[in-house]
Amino acid sequence: MGELLRSLVSSVLDAAPPLIFAALGATLSERSGVVNVGVEGMMRAGAFVAAVAALAMPTPLAVVVGMAAGALVASVHAVLTIRLRCDQVVSGMAINLVMLALGTFLLEALFSSPSSTPPITQLPGWAGHPVTTWLAFALPVLVHLALTRTAWGLRVRAAGEKPQAVAVMGVRVGWLRAGAVLASGALAGLGGAVLSTATLDRFEHHMPTGLGFMAVAAMVFGRWTPLGATAAAVFFAFGDALRISLGSSAPGLMPQGVLLALPYLLTLVVLAVSGQRSAAPAALGVAWDPEVR
């Protein structure tokens, strides 16, 4: 039993970080009032770019480049939703579709391979786990403090709840939201980069395999708070680790597909019980137009 628990904890420590980073990213963006269902695409950008960059530079640096790629993709989302006031869900889904196809296209075009990039040196570890694992425990606290204890955090939250109030203070809602969206993209990019440089040692064509959507689920499950989203991400990762170990130790106990569906089912149940309006930021999804108040 102790053995099983230890291996479970170990696999959670490996599986949770990408989800935690992406869920934190989604939370930041949505707390500022911008829906971000493009997390999946931003993660894919981070995963691909980090794996490619690591061919030419030290892996830790490549992870930073991956984050920049995530932020770059997020900047498209920011321009479309904030400057051009597009539908935020449309923009996010468009980003997902583009990144899905672009990743496959570049993989084929640059490496003549339909499946993966060449292997790279993985991220260095500390105490048996990649450094990013330990970062994944520190970052949620930092984001929580930034959102609740700093003037910037107060403004970001206000931009998501009542942007008029922020505008009246003389702070520009658009720039505030753009900052949150860019940070969100960088975090999603980091999550993706962890997949291709720490979890594995290459970019694979299916990455991130829906993890971005699961991060959105974790954010909703965690009621749009950094610590809640992190807890949900750890919970989902734990469920997944349990699924994998049960699958090998007691096959047939519960079909894999049913277990795979559980996190999403639970999120639905939580939403159904609590209702969404109570937790989501009030101005979420509403474009800020200074001329229409």
Partner: peptide
């Protein structure tokens, strides 16, 4: 869920997508 609980359809349909794919492709079809 939308009409009775105010759950936004974007979130709930995303969940329903993954529930469908998991149940169908990882369980029923295999």
């Amino acid at each position: 869920l939308k009409t009775t609980r105010g759950v936004h359809e974007v979130i709930s349909t995303i969940m329903m997508n993954w529930i469908a794919v998991s149940l169908v492709e990882n369980w029923l079809v295999v």
